[in-house]
Design a protein around this nucleic acid. Structure first.
Ligand SMILES: [Zn+2]
Ligand SMILES: [Zn+2]
Ligand SMILES: [Zn+2]
Ligand SMILES: [Zn+2]
Lengths: 132, 132
DNA sequence: TAACACTATGTAATAATATAACATTTACAT
DNA sequence: ATGTAAATGTTATATTATTACATAGTGTTA
């Protein structure tokens, strides 16, 4: 068990919003949604996002510039992330597969670099969209 | 052998620049470098980049918003890309490993989605930087 | 408790990345 | 020559992210 991180006020507001969202959220959409709570500037959002990513509570979907809450309770730090992204409905789900992550970290370890993390994004049509 | 794509004027100018570069190039840096050749607007650059990505001549490094020429002659289309990225010197190299790509496309095929492509980015220290 | 270090916050301005909208031109197949 | 798709040119604007600087809270230790 990792040490439990206490979130600051802004971090908590922003995490709660992302966590409740059914879809990845973009920074300026987050900003718009938290303005009533007193968070008025982009930087306040980006700072909270940076911290939340750092401690693994959220992940950035790089290809979409968007953020989702970690869907994998054991993923306390964002050092090995994998996602399926639907190119039609833009649904994103986090993949949590031990074999896959073992395979990839082994691959990285044997590659000659001093490996610190990876990010993998699969694209295609989700189950719903492919049956349409 | 795939059909050989003929590049248009702007596409060729921009591809040549990226291909000669020793490092990933960002869109506005590309723009700056091709202004003397008559390409004056961001959109001209982005349109060429889009096309070059589509036909697999270059790849976008999503975590860096930068572009590199494909280093894998057999990679005629950007449907399965993998990179090592050095967090110190920002060197990026394309990984071309048949086992890895087989493993990942099999994984995707068996995941329930209608898989179309993936992108994988490893982060860490490259050989040079780790020995410093 | 005072001093210190560290983290977080507030605010304004601006940088960097990317697209929309519209007009025109080129390539090339019928 | 006509139609059509791809590419280009141009202006304006949208979106994403950071710099710089000032202030406030939190916890540790002298
Ligand atoms: Zn996670
Ligand atoms: Zn879908
Ligand atoms: Zn390639
Ligand atoms: Zn390096």
């Amino acid at each position: 068990m990792q040490k439990q991180q206490t979130l600051s006020r802004n971090q908590k507001i922003i995490f709660d919003l992302i966590d409740k969202s059914q879809e990845p959220m973009k920074a300026y959409s987050i900003l718009f949604n938290v303005q009533k709570k007193g968070i008025k500037a982009p930087l306040q959002v980006y700072r909270a996002l940076d911290k939340l990513v750092e401690i693994g509570k959220i992940h950035k979907i790089e290809s979409r510039n968007a953020f989702i809450a970690c869907q994998n309770s054991s993923c306390q730090i964002s050092k090995a992330t994998a996602f399926s992204i639907c190119e039609s409905c833009e649904n994103v789900s986090e993949i949590s597969n031990t074999k896959l992550s073992k395979y990839l970290s082994n691959f990285a370890e044997s590659s000659g670099m001093k490996y610190s993390k990876y990010n993998l994004e699969f694209f295609g049509l989700c189950k719903k969209c492919k049956s349409k």
